[in-house]
């Protein structure tokens, strides 16, 4: 990548461009860039680092505000939040919801993308537009009738209500369609001459050839589903069926003798943050590829 620095620009005016380029080899590094990066990384990361530190503290330690050393409570807050405050079931519910949404969304979108790319049929453009236009209807725009519908169907407090509204996806269909269109013509024609049927073509050719894109999409979808808050808050009232984001709200009321147990809450926050972070770390390759960031 580029070798030049903030410093070069100033040097350039004094000594001319060519000497500046030669100098980059021996520059005492780009200190301004490093300083800026370290500062911004720290500012962005500090709340989460502090949250982690506090999550290991006992209540008196937490209320000693300036104490930011790792606490003496160890992982006791985590154990407690897991066993006594329902975190285990919140996380499990979130995990089930996120996996179901991810698998269903990718599967359904793959089928739709195959139809949109490899078939020619009436109203194709209209249908594609209809799918894309759903981007304009986030949950809040249709929340009242959606809730009424779930209530009428008796789906409240079920997995169906949690996942159903997330199955169709304009983004996934759009990205998969783009990806399928980039597959070389001759591969598609070869399959056609060989008489390979659409589902076999999807399973044996398209999916293996789109592995990077599908894993990237899966991570994004998983994280998106895991982070949902408003819809679960409304459609799930039974606390044992609730997802972890709304679980954070329940945790807020936890306290002993009038003092909020922030250590416990921070432990919950760290736990809630963990699965998307793990997904991000494990799948950073395909994720960065999907974003076009891979080296």
């Amino acid at each position: 990548m580029s070798l030049d620095t903030n410093d070069i620009a100033t040097d350039v005016r004094e000594r001319g461009p060519l000497s500046a380029i030669a100098d980059t080899q021996v520059l005492p590094a780009q200190w301004r860039v490093h300083l800026g990066l370290i500062t911004s990384v720290l500012v962005m990361a500090s709340p989460l680092l502090l949250a982690f530190v506090m999550s290991t503290q006992t209540v008196p330690e937490v209320y000693d505000i300036t104490d930011i050393s790792v606490g003496t409570d160890g992982l006791a807050n985590y154990a407690e939040v897991f066993t006594r405050y329902g975190m285990a079931s919140y996380m499990f519910n979130s995990l089930v919801m996120s996996i179901v949404v991810t698998v269903a969304k990718i599967a359904v979108s793959l089928l739709a993308a195959v139809a949109l790319v490899f078939y020619d049929f009436r109203f194709k453009n209209a249908i594609f537009f209809l799918i894309l236009f759903t981007l304009m209807f986030p949950v809040p725009v249709r929340i009242v009738p959606l809730y009424e519908m779930m209530a009428a169907l008796g789906w409240t407090n079920t997995l169906l209500a949690l996942t159903g509204p997330y199955v169709a996806s304009a983004t996934a269909v759009f990205l998969l369609r783009q990806h399928f269109m980039s597959i070389p013509d001759s591969l598609v024609e070869s399959a056609k001459v060989d008489g390979v049927g659409p589902l076999r073509f999807l399973w044996k050719v398209l999916i293996p050839m789109s592995r990077g894109m599908i894993s990237g999409l899966s991570v994004i979808t998983f994280i998106y589903a895991w982070n949902q808050y408003l819809w679960p808050l409304i459609v799930v009232s039974d606390q044992s069926k609730q997802v972890v984001q709304v679980g954070m709200k329940y945790l807020q009321s936890v306290g002993n003798a009038g003092q909020t147990d922030w250590g416990l809450i921070m432990a919950g926050a760290v736990l809630t943050r963990l699965p998307p972070l793990l997904a991000l770390i494990v799948f950073r390759g395909p994720l960065l590829e999907t974003f076009g960031l891979s080296e």
Partner: peptide, 28 residues
């Protein structure tokens, strides 16, 4: 095309990148 019993060889070979040579040959 499939029912014509023809085999086609393409300019850019049209091999499936994720399949071995053997799998490419037997896929059709």
């Amino acid at each position: 095309p499939a029912a014509r019993d023809v085999a086609m060889v393409f300019q850019n070979y049209a091999l499936y990148p994720h399949m071995t040579a053997r799998e490419n040959m037997t896929f059709g």
